[in-house]
Amino acid sequence: MLHDYAGHDVAALVKRSELVSRILITVAIIGAVGTPLFIWARTPLIHARVAENGGWSPDVIHANANQPFTLHLTSDDVVHGFAVGQMDMQSVDVLPGKVTDITLKIDKPGIYTFFCTRWCGLNHWRMRGTIEVGGSSSAPGPAAVPMYVTLGLDIDAPHEAPVIPINRPSAISGQKLAANLPIDRSIDYYLKHSPYQVFDELSTTSLTESQRWDVVASIWQSNTTPESRANGQQLYTQNCAACHGENGAGNGVFADDLAAAGESSIQTMAGADSMTMQSPVDFTNPIRMLGASPALLQGKILRGGMGTGMPMWGSIFTEEQIWDLIAYLYSFQFDY
């Protein structure tokens, strides 16, 4: 009826072109919707978001022991990083909108923690997930009991040094003084004693107080190496400095935020004394540092908490990494 002006053939032609156009448009729309949806549905990504927005998603990864598996990591907001705890592995950056592939192979079955390695805000350390490695090859051995447990140390108790040095103790001058003293230089002695305890035990000698502190510094130096302290410094910079400060003074970039978070938790939880100390510890403060033994510090780092915002690092650091870190922490007190 419409095309009677033009005759039958033209009408058929118009109709065919109309039909072709409709098919083309429909195919184009379906293609534009379907193709990306299809590929998107088949791309299993692990999304990283700041902890406030959900952290890792998914946050549980399943794998089999001794079988390599590949993870496709992407960040939905800011720069994150990825590493598996206690593996001493090179972390990879997880960049916003980019996909990073990483292939892992874990030998022993067990539950591993993966974590964010680039600071992404106050709650960066909450960005953790687990890799559940299945397999029956070898049952996981019993976990080593940390030293603070075997020693029965209460890591929540105050540990103040009643006496502190007037000048910064020097390991170099201490070395000369210590040469002729009957001192226990074993690693075990170092780990289990606080600097103040050693200082106190040296009271039987004829040394002055400042000389005794120098000797303590030398003992601490001789039980650590420049390499371990350097490694500790690197770990400290990456993991601790944002709160505890680059110079250890407890004044990191998040210190104010933590204090504010502590304040608000006091207001909301009336009488909850345990939440009062959100501010990070000052490692340059000799009263606290000289009263703490390496074993005590290890406990604090392993478990975290202590009524503060201190994260739990036990599932992240290897034992060696923690001792390196502790070796570095004492360099805020001693001149090596």
């Binding site: 919707v33 990306p36 998107w40 916003p96």
Partner: peptide, 12 residues
Amino acid sequence: LAGLIGSPVGSR
């Protein structure tokens, strides 16, 4: 579609 299912990072 990209807006709805793609990366939430605008520049990507």
